[in-house]
Nucleic acid binder design. Sequence first.
DNA 1: CTGCCTGCAAACTCTTTGCACGAAT
DNA 2: ATTCGTGCAAAGAGTTTGCAGGCAG
Lengths: 153, 153
Amino acid sequence: MNIDACREKFRAFLGEHGLRVTNQRLAIFEAAFQIKEHFTAEELLDRARAIDSSVSRATVYRTLPILTESSLVREIDVGKDFKFYLANPEKGNEQAQIVCIDCDKIFEIDAPFLEWYGSSVSSKFGLRPVSQRLQISAQCAEYRNTGVCKNRS
Amino acid sequence: MNIDACREKFRAFLGEHGLRVTNQRLAIFEAAFQIKEHFTAEELLDRARAIDSSVSRATVYRTLPILTESSLVREIDVGKDFKFYLANPEKGNEQAQIVCIDCDKIFEIDAPFLEWYGSSVSSKFGLRPVSQRLQISAQCAEYRNTGVCKNRS
DNA sequence: CTGCCTGCAAACTCTTTGCACGAAT
DNA sequence: ATTCGTGCAAAGAGTTTGCAGGCAG
């Protein structure tokens, strides 16, 4: 989905939920979609402030749930003490993440079986799956050999 | 592995790593193995204090890494702001978790393919997997119908 | 105008850490 | 005797929230 369609979807979502279209929310939306990879709340704040300097940390944290509930942004918890986010995720729950434990880089991988697997195993417990997450922690080949990861930022 | 073998493994692990066998560490070990399901650091503290009232929160947090590194306890991060632990996990990384989003109950499920899947997909990125986690968030059938989960504690 | 939205700063939660005392080896 | 381990309390980090003022509808 291109950014214009996403922006429209965002405005529509706000309208449908009786939420107001504010400059701050728009700036946060634009900032999120400028970032092509995974980002943190803090990085989003920096980007959003570059667009609208009045954006505060609180508003970023209050806007992120709106973005995730509208499926425009996916929240990714890799077991660290802060969360990552990804704008306009292409494949819903059909993806998994590999996290490099040295450089923290996140690789998105296709996991087409995932939805099916979660559903079939959950039904044995009388449960209906809401979301699935497959996460793999790994080391780069280079890190393994040299102790340093080439992806380190 | 029965508890006696585990206790012996714990003492051996301490010895091999130049760590001392203290009453507090033993109390925390016993407390963890008294709990047959998943527990939090706070629950472990309560149990450990019932055995040795001198155990402090700090020591619990300092002992948990020892228990996880010795594979006597598994750490489970379900994306909440605190971690769960499970003593004497039977199937290493060959298990996944289903978490009920209402009552937070954690169901352990077998996932025998998991190790293989992580390895095969990671190798495409030149990565070596360190750990895998498959987590499914789900709702109880009862919760779905009545809005209340029968497992609610 | 009305009331949702905002920035600010303080509060919160879980976890970690500095310090001086205490206990294991 | 040494040194590591401990309890206490404060610090830390990311996130949330109360409040008074501001802007969308």
